[in-house]
């Protein structure tokens, strides 16, 4: 039996700001809670291709593993949790801006 697909979001850095962004159904958001959660592997691959084509908006798009919750996607890995939040030594980045 094939392995169960882990739900994902498409994430990248913004070309001009450099900060973390997530794909929504219609565009991009800086708030992970607003991101489009992708539960189907083929659809996820397609959405990644679409993201990668937006070369003048995003840099380095990839699929990140998430756990769907009522409050929105929750990062599976600590790296994505840090990207969502910002550094731990100062209140900078998303934790200060959102």
């Amino acid at each position: 039996m094939p392995r169960a697909f882990t739900p994902k979001v498409v994430t990248a850095n913004h070309l001009l700001e450099g900060d973390v962004i997530y794909q929504t159904a219609t565009g991009w958001t800086r708030d992970l809670a607003q991101a489009e959660i992708l539960e189907d592997e083929a659809h996820a691959e397609l959405r990644l291709v679409e993201a990668t084509q937006q070369r003048d908006v995003v840099v380095g798009a990839y699929l990140a593993d998430m756990e769907p919750t009522d409050a929105g996607p929750k990062p599976k890995h600590f790296r994505e949790a840090f990207r969502m939040r910002g550094p731990s030594n100062y209140s900078h980045g998303k934790q200060a801006e959102l």
Binding site: E17, G18, D19
Partner: peptide, 16 residues
């Protein structure tokens, strides 16, 4: 990317 790196500009986790 190779042009920006030659000039010290990286893209990191939260920002350039």
């Amino acid at each position: 990317k190779p042009l920006r790196l030659m000039n010290g500009l990286y893209l990191q986790l939260h920002a350039y």
